[in-house]
């Protein structure tokens, strides 16, 4: 019974969370197109921090990432009349940011840097034969309540920030922003396969950190 509870929290709750409360995207878009400043402010509150984080994966400094995110907003405003709603507004916005960040960071690195080490398998946890060396300590059910505390979120934010760049980008879009896999591949210009490997690695690392929080 408790196991089922944890599983339910792991999926549905997140979806609810990622579609933040308040006006829906369609409504905000319509209001923005009609020149409503409040709608713009609302979108900024929702997406700016993520846009800066995404840009940061491509450029050298926080200041440049802020500039890139600003240019992203300008790109949104300028393209407002052309937006056809084929992707979500958020996906479109993130894609503008990535394109801007890539052209800004052109002399630094051209593509999302995916290091080989980020795609390799994680050794040590399994025996030669492929069984657990040390089976996972149980903490998932017990930890659910504790894990939702705000101070845990602050620590997880740090774990995410410390991930290798490509893993950080993917987990930010997938698990922090809650975007579907296809949108993330589209935004970052990576294959579904690579995206999932990077996500797998990122989740594995964050899980390890959480284990240290949960078990002592």
């Amino acid at each position: 019974m408790r196991g089922r509870l944890a599983i339910a929290i792991g999926t549905d709750d997140r979806r609810e969370h990622s579609s933040s409360p308040g006006p829906g995207e369609g409504e905000l878009l319509a209001r923005l197109q009609a020149g409503d400043e409040e709608a713009f402010a609302c979108l900024v509150d929702r997406h700016h921090a993520a846009m800066v984080r995404i840009a940061r994966g491509y450029v050298r400094s926080q200041a440049v990432a802020e500039e890139v995110a600003q240019e992203g907003w300008l790109g949104l405003l300028r393209g407002l009349d052309r937006f056809e709603g084929r992707s979500s507004l958020r996906t479109w916005l993130f894609r503008i940011v990535v394109n801007r960040a890539i052209s800004t960071g052109l002399h630094e690195r051209q593509h999302l840097p995916v290091a080989d080490s980020e795609l390799g398998d994680d050794g040590g946890r399994f025996s030669q034969d492929g069984w657990w060396v040390t089976p996972p300590v149980h903490w998932a059910d017990e930890a659910v309540d504790r894990m939702v505390a705000p101070e845990v979120a602050a620590r997880v934010r740090r774990f995410v920030a410390e991930l290798p760049p490509a893993q950080r980008q993917v987990v930010t879009l997938r698990d922090v922003e809650g975007l579907p896999s296809a949108d993330v591949c589209d935004i970052l210009g990576i294959s579904e396969g690579n995206q999932r490997v990077l996500l797998h690695r990122a989740r594995t690392r964050i899980r390890q950190h959480l284990e240290q929080e949960a078990v002592w």
């Binding site: 196991g3 944890a6 930890a143 894990m147 959480l210």
Partner: peptide, 17 residues
């Protein structure tokens, strides 16, 4: 248990936003 932990991880990461 590992799968459960991954699900908790996804949930917690979703609250960072």
């Amino acid at each position: 248990e590992h799968l459960r932990q991954i699900r908790v991880t996804v949930t917690v990461t979703g609250r960072v936003r």
